[in-house]
Design a protein around this nucleic acid. Structure first.
Lengths: 198, 198
DNA sequence: ATTTTATATGAACATTTGTTAATATAAGCT
DNA sequence: AGCTTATATTAACAAATGTTCATATAAAAT
């Protein structure tokens, strides 16, 4: 691992501070101090505070899901296994330290930033709904699951994932154990599958 | 309706501003200005800014669910109707203007306030899980639904409600129509019931 | 009517904030 | 070597913040 450039250090420190205090309270001085430089030196790397935030925003939506959305058509035929894989991917992201910080920033700033709201619906919701709907549709065609509206089914499926992730994010912020919630992911797949399998 | 006292006006203005800007950005001056007084006058009613916030916090957890948690033992026997009633109550709160504002404050400040986090788990999660678990348990005993872990079932049930409410809160912040999400509540009951009914 | 009490104002305060300017220092290039 | 460029520091700024104090004003109590 190559040593971080000052700009990268700034971004890293800003991420951490914003995820703990929010954008407004994560002052330029605190960020610079964490990096080990003065506030003024920071302006050699970013033109202003907002630009640091915009840089961080890009990371939030740098999808770690890209690989899992490939062969839906084939994988969907595997029924429950498909759901299991999808959830495993979701779980992995939920427990990833970096993703956790970015998710917290998303939650913290979602009401202060319209673009954030729009991208939440697009990247966190619609994208998942699309993949899942396609999979559920195929499962229905192949009589693996009961017939129902694929969109509704997808909505039901991801809502629980979001809720678990939300709770994980809260608990980890207080360093509270999340082992219960970890198993909740598997319970979700089991319970859900029992309810839709034919 | 009796005219509001200055203290009540301050609380009201603070609620609105905090729910839109967050605690940090909702300055004492903005609050006072909205009320129509100077900042200094505000301190005749509250000793400091935090006290206003603490006053508002109490409203967040002034449960509007208290009535619905009464005759669970009887109502649970009605099966799907029980769930429908539960969701109707939840839906009512989700679309209530005052509750919407308070819920937004909860989401905005949940990472800045440990007490808020704890009470979220207690009032928004555990309390619901408890009522639902009891109901599902009774439904299982009476063979209305398939046998499963009542806690898991409850978790699955409320997670979707939370997700819908979260999305409603986001959309209404931008004055975007929520009719789709309104029907999502009913779809949830229908879909869920199909998956658990025996 | 006079005194007391509650609530308003205006001005000021000490901090904290984002940002900039002048200047020093160290690294890279010719 | 000297010159250029990148990046650091110190100092200062204007604006915004929470809060306080002396004082005015209007309502309530005697």
């Amino acid at each position: 691992m190559s040593p971080l450039s000052t700009k990268e250090k700034i971004k890293l420190a800003a991420k951490k501070l914003i995820s703990e205090l929010g954008y407004k309270s994560a002052s330029v001085r605190k960020i610079a101090s964490d990096v080990g430089i003065r506030e003024s030196a920071l302006y050699n790397h970013y033109t202003n505070k907002e630009e640091i935030f915009l840089d961080i925003l890009q990371d939030i939506f740098a999808s770690p899901f890209s690989t899992s959305t490939q062969n839906v058509k084939e994988d969907a035929l595997k029924g429950k296994l498909f759901l299991h894989r999808f959830v495993t991917q979701y779980k992995l992201v939920s427990f990833d330290k970096e993703s956790e910080i970015l998710f917290r920033i998303l939650l913290l700033e979602i009401f202060s930033n319209k673009g954030l709201r729009e991208r939440f619906f697009e990247d966190f919701h619609n994208k998942n709904i699309k993949v899942l709907s396609e999979a559920f549709f195929i499962m229905m065609q192949n009589n693996l699951i009961r017939s129902s509206d694929p969109m509704t089914m997808s909505y039901e499926f991801i809502s629980t994932l979001f809720y678990i992730r939300f709770q994980i994010t809260l608990l980890r912020f207080d360093s509270i154990s999340t082992t219960n919630l970890s198993t909740q992911f598997e319970k979700h797949v089991d319970f859900f599958w029992e309810g839709i399998k034919v």
